[in-house]
């Protein structure tokens, strides 16, 4: 009996491991499709949204509604027909978007991050305070998740130079991420007469 129980438990464990690895593989495929399809241009590298498109990560939107919207968007979003991206691919993207923010985070040092941000030239494109500028987008405060920040920096989609492990470690990224998260929020526009329309 005990042996039977162990066998069943093992089977469950194997199934669970298989399910996890399958889900992770699907999520990874989803991330790849998300990036390759150019979704990040309007919805951010982590699906966090930006000025062009809304947040997608963790939206809780049902898969069917998600696919329907991608096929028949309103206003400025480009329609993605079946020939461009399959339902399976959208399924993978949907799974990945649902998984964002689930990864455990390293703890970074904002003080060390400030030094690394400068030493590694991040400020060249993203300005001294990570506020962005003509050459690169704003990074902080409220940066994207550390996982996505690290992943994108290692595999940038456009003109950004890639930061390999030999140049910046995962801990380095955690520190820079902490620096960016610690940047002060801007004053309200109402308090800045210099920026009146």
């Amino acid at each position: 009996m005990r042996k039977k129980i162990l066998t069943i438990a093992g089977a469950f464990a194997m199934f669970a491991l298989f399910s996890i690895s399958t889900r992770l593989a699907a999520q990874e495929a989803g991330l790849q499709r998300y990036t390759a399809s150019g979704c990040a241009a309007c919805h951010g590298a982590s699906g966090q949204g930006n000025n062009l498109g809304p947040r997608l990560a963790g939206s809780g939107q049902p898969l069917e509604a998600f696919i329907d919207y991608v096929r028949n968007p309103v206003w400025s979003m480009i329609a993605y027909p079946e020939e461009t991206i399959s339902d399976d691919d959208l399924d993978a993207i949907h799974a990945w978007l649902a998984s964002v923010d689930m990864a455990p985070q390293r703890v970074g040092s904002a003080e060390r991050g400030a030094m690394l941000y400068r030493r590694n030239g991040c400020y060249q494109c993203h300005a001294n305070e990570g506020q962005g500028g003509a050459q690169g987008p704003r990074l902080g405060p409220n940066p994207i998740t550390l996982t996505r920040f690290t992943w994108y920096s290692r595999h940038p989609a456009r003109g950004m130079p890639p930061y390999a492990e030999a140049v910046m470690s995962d801990q380095d990224f955690a520190d820079v991420h902490a620096f960016l998260a610690a940047r002060p929020q801007p004053p309200s526009l109402e308090d800045l007469p210099q920026l009146r329309p």
């Binding site: 506020q131 004053p187 920026l195």
Partner: peptide
């Protein structure tokens, strides 16, 4: 205008 307000009080001065 919102983008310009970031790093408003930083030194060196933001462009």
């Amino acid at each position: 205008r919102v983008a310009a307000s970031y790093a408003w009080n930083a030194s060196p001065i933001s462009t």
